[in-house]
Design a protein around this nucleic acid. Structure first.
Lengths: 346, 346
DNA sequence: ATATTCACCGAAATCGATTTCGGTGACTAT
DNA sequence: ATAGTCACCGAAATCGATTTCGGTGAATAT
């Protein structure tokens, strides 16, 4: 099972390896006749250039690395899909790794990708990452890096994010527009930037619409799971807080809370309106269906790859890379866990 | 920004490249002192061997390819995660591609992976793949291939699957054990092996328990989506068939049907029991929660990689590869869309 | 007849790491 | 003193594709 190499093609045709190579690459100093023969034989033998040799010579692998905190996750899976599709379109393949929200793992993954000489890296920071030197190092050493979704303002590189503050503002405003006066917020720990931003959006929306921000209406969970949402609903009920609206950091939290509130006799949305975040598939099949904020993962993935692709190309051409921050649009999706918007009287 | 190569290390230490290489690889014919110096300097300069050069020389990339029909999909995402985790454990990275259930794309993806000289390929056939020559070719040319989930009996290679027939049998039997007498089946077109096997399991369970198989209780949908489930529920209702049990090919179909049936006044499970398939996350949050068959994706991914890994190793050692078929266990998960099991009188 | 141009082709270096095989010098055995 | 042993090291080939740079022979120009 000997592989077909240029050398073999050259031998068969009685020409040199150089000529064979140039024939396939359409160099002008090779006769049409020779080109024809080389190409015909290459096709015949199903010649495939050895990618290692090419990469070694050309110093590029046409492979990028993609690190996500989690793969079994509707939003991240959508992003990954967007990245892979766009990458394939441009002739790149994608090695995917998951940090599992661990800083140590994230560092290790990064090394693995560098060792494989990927042409660039897309990474979403783990929630537990608080030091960014490992990323800064990679950038400094010259490998293009683009951050998506979970980013840090401290890192100088291109980024793709949603405008969390605006998205949360819109979501909260929607609850207000539908008549809610006492809106609670469920979120995780205030570490990741997204958590901070959505929290700010929530607060700003309250303020801008004459509602007082009350600390006792903010409920923090350890994680962002369905179970945490379920449990925090009990906490909310038992706290005695009288609320008529609930804006959760994720659909999962919202769904967990909604299920528990319903179990305890609360009518959604009549007693309490609930707004999730992300527009996961599950929001369409809960009872009632969950109002949420659409976060276009696929598009984010595409955009992230495009930024990375540009950096890679610019690097090859030795052109200066300009860092860019793309904010993709979000949209409130009104479903049945919120009341209809109150039409203001003209 | 010159890269650190063995050559540079050798130059600095005044030794040859060969010696440097052997020092790092702990060859016995290099003195302890030299090894110490080389290693110290390598660490100092953060030397990373050029993976292309290594791959070119050693004829292995330590990268495998993974083709799935879809990534934004709980089950496949779980498998992918299992593969990636296990692969990383063994020093392999994974390039993921998605066929989007297209035969043409699947063929193209396969070529892309071969061009990148991956050490092996894991693939789940697209539903529209009816010719297997492209896979057989790869196997014949010597690249290890392992099929998972969507397989073909016509291909001679290792496979990881669930025992669909048994799983469907168990699911149907569960419905029977809970008192159902007229059990309908919703499924997609009879192309993929899984569809055939689950259908057979359903039929066998009916037969073994004295229930007549009736063709008019089998409903075929074009796709396997939530929407198709929703629509087919209308078809079922309008067909006038009197059923008290429903076994769907997937959780999505089951959920869609359940929502529609509920909308039309059917009580689940009192009027009709519903059983899904796959144990996706969403089954825990539907109303009522959906009984289903657990299909351990993560474990399948792990097993699939292990099989592939063994083949790769055996290939390196020129040992004969024995094809193996692993069937991972499934389990009926009883939730609230089915009635409790009727206890037989002793 | 010599110079110039042009169309083609190939030797060889290069990318980095690996590995075989043949050294060299020091030391021991006889 | 000579052969033999041992510890250690390096030149060079190899993996396969790319690309520079220097050819060669034929045709054209003067």
């Amino acid at each position: 099972m000997t592989n077909i190499t240029l050398k073999r093609i050259a031998e068969i045709l009685g020409i040199s390896v150089a000529t064979a190579s140039k024939a396939l690459k359409d160099y002008p100093d090779i006769s049409k006749e020779t080109k024809r023969k080389v190409r015909a034989l290459a096709k015949d033998l199903d010649y495939k250039p050895n990618s290692f040799a090419q990469s070694l010579r050309n110093r590029e692998s046409c492979i990028i690395g993609l690190i996500a905190p989690e793969i079994v996750h509707h939003f991240f899976a959508s992003i990954i899909k967007g990245v892979i599709d766009k990458a394939e379109e441009k002739g790149y393949l994608v090695i995917t790794l998951q940090s599992g929200e661990s800083y140590e793992t994230e560092k290790k993954q990064l090394q693995l990708l560098l060792e494989k000489n990927v042409d660039g890296i897309l990474i979403s920071l783990s929630d537990r990452t608080i030091n960014y030197d490992h990323i800064a190092d990679v950038i400094e050493k010259g490998t293009p890096v683009v951050l998506y979704d979970k980013i840090s303002k401290l890192l100088e590189c291109s980024k793709v994010i949603i405008d969390d503050r605006k998205a949360a503002y819109d979501a909260t405003k929607y609850l207000i527009d539908t008549g809610c006066k006492n809106i609670a917020h469920i979120r995780g720990p205030l570490k990741p930037q997204t958590t901070i931003d959505r929290f700010m959006g929530y607060k700003n929306a309250l303020k801008d619409h004459g509602l007082e921000f009350r600390d006792e209406l903010v409920f923090e969970t350890k994680n962002l799971t369905y179970e945490d949402g379920y449990e925090v609903a009990d906490t909310i009920m038992d706290s005695g807080a009288e609320i008529d609206g609930l804006f959760a950091f994720t659909d999962l939290l919202a769904t967990g809370a909604m299920v528990r509130l319903t179990e305890r006799g609360i009518k959604v949305p009549d007693d309490i309106s609930i707004m999730g975040f992300s527009n996961w598939f599950l929001t369409r099949i809960t009872t009632p269906t969950l109002s949420t904020v659409d976060q276009p993962g696929y598009e984010m993935g595409e955009k992230a790859f495009e930024l990375l692709y540009n950096e890679i190309q610019n690097k090859k051409l030795k052109k200066p890379v300009q860092k860019e921050i793309i904010r993709v649009r979000t949209e409130v999706i009104a479903r049945n866990s919120t009341k209809p918007v109150i039409v203001k009287k003209g």
